Simulated assay, not measured.
Amino acid sequence: MVAHLLGILITYAAAVALVHGVHARYIKQWQGRRRAVHYVLVTSNHERQVEWIVRALSLYALLSGVRVKVTVFDEQSNDRTLAILQRVAAHVGVELIVIEMDEQAKYQLKHMLRNTRKKDDRSIYIDLRGGGEAARIPYW
């Protein structure tokens, strides 16, 4: 009787170990394939819109399960755009990078635009200085 009970316990422990091993392997593979989207925004005096845009991207990341990275290039804003972005950066669920536009930033932006033409790059360039570009932002 003890031998039968011991056999059942060993079989149960082997099944638990097998399920944990398969689950760990599945999680590792899923994280490797996890999608990420990079939004590159160009702003200039957008204090009324920028917080809502970042929050819309955060909602998109939350609801779709997609990692979202946002890089904001600000071109000489005279309003509170930068202050709002820095305040929001700590509270949203996206990786937010704010860069003030200078000559080096313009070169970096051109380099990013060149890379967005590659098929494996998932970057989306949105210039908010022009009209109608904000419509490409999900949940906006």
Rank of each mutant, 00 (worst) to 15 (best):
I126A: 07
L82F: 02
K28A: 15
V54A: 06
A13S: 11
Y139W: 06
G131K: 12
H38F: 03
S64M: 14
A14H: 01
E103Y: 00
V68P: 01
Q31M: 15
E95N: 09
I97H: 14
A89F: 06
N78W: 07
G32E: 09
D120G: 07
K118D: 03
I126V: 11
W52L: 07
S44Q: 15
L59A: 12
D127H: 02
Q76A: 14
E47D: 05
A14P: 00
H91M: 01
G65E: 12
G131Y: 08
H38P: 01
V88G: 03
R48S: 12
V22N: 01
H91Y: 02
A105E: 10
S58I: 05
L57W: 13
E133K: 14
V50T: 05
Y39P: 05
V40M: 11
G93S: 13
I84N: 04
V94D: 08
N115Y: 10
V92K: 13
A83H: 02
E47M: 02
D127P: 10
I124P: 02
A90N: 04
R80Y: 08
Y12P: 00
G131F: 14
R114A: 05
D79Q: 09
V22M: 03
G7I: 02
Y125W: 09
Y107N: 06
F73V: 08
A89H: 09
V42D: 00
N115C: 04
V42Y: 00
G130M: 13
R122K: 11
A105S: 15
L128Y: 01
A135L: 04
H4S: 09
S44T: 14
T71R: 04
A36M: 15
I10L: 09
A15G: 01
R117W: 09
L85N: 12
G32T: 12
D120K: 06
V70R: 07
L18I: 09
K119T: 12
R87E: 14
H46L: 15
Q31K: 13
I137N: 08
R114W: 04
Y12M: 01
I97K: 14
A24S: 14
V37S: 03
S44R: 11
G32M: 13
I137G: 11
N78Y: 06
Q86V: 03
H38I: 02
G65F: 05
L18W: 14
I8P: 00
S123Y: 04
G21K: 14
T116E: 13
E47G: 05
R129F: 05
A61S: 15
L5Q: 06
A83K: 06
V98K: 05
K119R: 14
W140D: 07
G7E: 12
V16Q: 03
D74R: 13
V68E: 06
Q29M: 13
T71Y: 06
A14D: 03
L96W: 03
V19H: 00
Y139C: 06
G132L: 08
V37D: 04
D121G: 00
L5T: 11
